[in-house]
Design a binder for these strands. Structure first.
Length: 481
RNA sequence: CGGGGUGUAGCGUAGUCUGGUUUAUCGCGCCUGGUUUGGGACCAGGAGAUCACAAGUUCAAAUCUUGUCACUCCGACCA
C-alpha cells in the first residue's frame, strides 16, 4: 500500500483526521475505539501480572534530563519546550508576556523515565518495597521532521511500563514476562506477525543496556518497530540514586526495565492487513464485529420488517454475552450495495444480510471480510456458536495471511551484491551474519539505507555479509518506515 | 533545515504555457421533494469559491512578476 492510499483509507473510514498542527492527528471514534480495545486487552494482562497504573505529569523540568544524559540523547532534537506562562493582549491579539518567562524550561514528555525515577526513589526504602511495577497510559510528544499518521505522529498515545527490581535476575524475568504479554497482544489480538530480537548498540535506546524489539514488515518491504522492551540495568538508578536496603542491611541500587507499545500498532495493523477493498480489522480489536443489513422491497415492507427486526434482536441478545458488537444499519434511504462497500472499507469482520429470501428459507447470508466470500448459515439455536467460531477463524486467518506475506519477503542472503540489489529493489527482511562492528553496520547503512532491525541469535557460525569475517551473530536487516 | 513539486466549493479536479465569451469547468458529497432498495439507484430542483495570502505589472489577472504562508515528495533525525 502506498502512502496516499494509506492516508485516504484512514480519512475515509473516519479513523483519524488532520489537525492544524503538522504531525498532530485527531482520533475519531472509530479509530479511538480500536486503541481503547488494545488498551483494554493489554491493561487486563498487566493487572494479572500486578502492574499498577499511575499518572505522572506531562511536563518535566529540564534539569531532570540533565541528570541522565543518555536518556535525552535520543530526544533532544525533537522536544516541545514550555518557556512562558502568560500572554498580554495587544490590539486584541495575544503576545507573549516576556516577564512571565520561567526560571527553568519545562519539556513536554518525550518519555517519562526521568520523572518517574526521580519521584519513585522516595517510595523505595527496603527490599520489601520491590518490585515496583509502574505503568501509565499517556501521550508523549516528539517533534519529528517527517510524519506519517500513526506510524510517525509528533504526538502519540502509548503505554509505558517502568519497573524496579532487587536484582538482575528479577529484572530479566520481568522482561521475559513482558515479552510473553506483547507476543500475545501482537500475534493473537492484532494478528501481526513479527521477528523478535535484541537491538544493536547503535540502534538501542541510549539509556538502556539492552533493547529488545518486535519488528514487522509491510507490503512494500519496509520495517515497522511494533514494541520495545528495555533492560536499563542500573543506568537510571545510579543517575537518580534509587536505592534500597537489602536483608543484610546494605544499600543497593535497583535494577530497572522499561517497555512500551504505542498507537503505531494501529498504523501497522492497517498497513499489514488492508486489501484493495479497504481495511481488515482483526475481530479481537474491532469496534464492530458484525454489521447487519436488511433488504426489503417497499411493497413488502410491512410484511418483513418486523420479522427481520426480531431476528436482529435475537442475535444481539444471544451474542451480547460473548461481547460481540453488532451494528444494525436499517437506513432504507441507502441502497444495500452502497452499505456493502462502506462496511467492507471499514474492515468489519462479518456482514449479515437478511431479506425476503432469508426469511422464507430460515437462513442468513453471512460474508467474511477476510476471505471476501459469502456463505449461508441456518437460523437455529446454534447460530451464536457458529458465529463465534467464524470470528475466531477470521482472527487466525488474518494472521496466517499476514505471516505468509512476511515469509515471502524474508530472504536468507550471504552475498553482499545480492543483498544490495534485494534491499534496494524489494526491501523486506534479510537474514544475514554481521561481524558485530559498528563500522560495518554504518557502512551498510550508508550504502543501502538498511539497518539491523535486530539480532536474532548467537549460536550458529557464519560469515559477515559485508566483511566476510567469521561471526556467530545472525541479524535481520531492513529499511525503516 | 537543503533540493523538487503543488495550492481553484467539504473532497477530487478543468482552465494557468499563449492575460479578455468565465456569470470559473466537471465528478463525488451536501440540502429539498418524489420514486427506488439482492453489489456504489434515478428524476427534478437547490446551496456552496473574495481561484492560499500580500504586493506589483496591465484598460483587464485564477492565468504574468516578486514576496509570504501552507501542504507534499526526496534527503538528514526517529517509537
Amino acid at each position: 500500500m502506498n502512502n496516499k492510499k494509506y492516508k485516504n483509507l484512514i480519512i475515509k473510514t473516519k479513523i483519524a483526521f488532520y489537525s492544524k498542527i503538522k504531525g498532530f492527528f485527531i482520533f475519531r471514534p472509530y479509530g479511538l475505539k480500536i486503541w481503547e480495545n488494545i488498551k483494554y486487552i493489554l491493561n487486563k494482562m498487566l493487572i494479572k501480572t500486578k502492574h499498577k497504573n499511575y499518572y505522572f505529569p506531562l511536563l518535566i523540568p529540564k534539569s531532570l534530563f540533565n541528570i541522565e544524559y543518555n536518556n535525552i540523547k535520543n530526544f533532544y532534537k525533537e522536544c516541545a519546550i514550555v518557556t512562558h506562562t502568560r500572554f498580554l493582549i495587544k490590539k486584541k491579539k495575544l503576545v507573549i508576556d516576556q516577564k512571565s518567562k520561567l526560571n527553568e524550561e519545562l519539556i513536554i514528555r518525550p518519555t517519562s523515565e526521568v520523572i518517574i525515577w526521580d519521584t519513585c526513589k522516595e517510595w523505595i526504602q527496603s527490599y520489601k518495597d520491590l518490585p515496583l511495577l509502574i505503568n501509565q497510559w499517556v501521550n508523549v510528544v516528539r517533534l519529528e521532521m517527517k510524519n506519517k499518521m500513526f506510524l510517525r505522529n509528533s504526538e502519540f498515545l502509548w503505554q509505558e511500563g517502568h519497573t524496579a527490581h532487587k536484582n538482575k535476575k528479577e529484572a530479566i524475568n520481568e522482561i521475559k514476562k513482558i515479552k510473553k504479554i506483547y507476543i500475545n497482544l501482537i500475534k493473537k489480538k492484532l494478528s501481526i506477525p513479527f521477528i523478535y530480537g535484541k537491538k544493536t548498540n547503535t540502534e538501542k535506546f541510549s539509556g538502556a543496556k539492552f533493547t529488545y524489539s518486535f519488528e514487522t514488515l509491510t507490503n512494500n518491504g519496509k520495517c515497522i518497530q511494533l514494541a520495545t522492551i528495555h533492560f536499563l540495568a542500573k543506568n537510571f538508578s545510579k543517575a537518580f540514586k534509587v536505592m534500597y536496603t537489602n536483608k543484610e542491611n546494605k544499600k543497593e541500587y535497583v535494577w530497572n526495565t522499561s517497555w512500551g507499545i504505542s498507537t503505531r500498532l494501529i498504523g501497522a495493523m492497517i498497513m499489514i492487513h488492508s486489501d484493495n477493498k479497504g481495511l481488515i480489522i482483526p475481530p479481537k480489536i474491532s469496534p464492530i464485529h458484525i454489521i447487519i443489513i436488511p433488504i426489503i422491497k417497499k411493497k413488502y415492507y410491512y410484511k418483513y420488517i418486523k420479522k427481520i427486526n426480531k431476528i436482529v434482536k435475537k442475535l444481539k441478545k444471544k451474542l451480547k454475552k460473548n461481547k460481540i458488537k453488532i451494528k444494525y444499519d436499517n437506513n432504507l434511504n441507502i441502497t444495500p450495495g452502497n452499505k456493502y462497500f462502506k462496511y467492507e472499507k471499514m474492515g468489519i469482520p462479518i456482514r449479515i444480510v437478511i431479506g425476503k429470501k432469508e426469511i422464507k428459507n430460515n437462513f442468513i447470508e453471512i460474508y467474511r471480510r477476510d476471505k471476501d466470500k459469502k456463505y449461508i448459515l441456518k437460523l437455529n439455536n446454534k447460530i451464536n456458536i457458529k458465529i463465534i467460531n467464524i470470528l475466531n477463524k477470521i482472527q487466525k486467518n488474518i494472521y496466517k495471511k499476514a505471516k505468509k506475506k512476511m515469509i515471502k519477503n524474508t530472504f536468507i542472503i550471504n552475498d553482499y551484491k545480492i543483498f544490495k540489489k534485494k534491499i534496494i529493489n524489494n526491501g523486506g527482511f534479510i537474514l544475514s551474519y554481521w561481524d558485530n562492528k559498528k563500522s560495518t553496520e554504518l557502512k551498510i547503512k550508508n550504502e543501502t539505507k538498511a539497518t539491523i532491525r535486530c539480532i536474532i541469535n548467537k549460536k550458529k557460525n557464519g560469515k559477515c555479509i559485508y566483511t566476510g569475517k567469521k561471526t556467530n551473530t545472525k541479524v535481520v536487516f531492513g529499511k525503516s518506515y
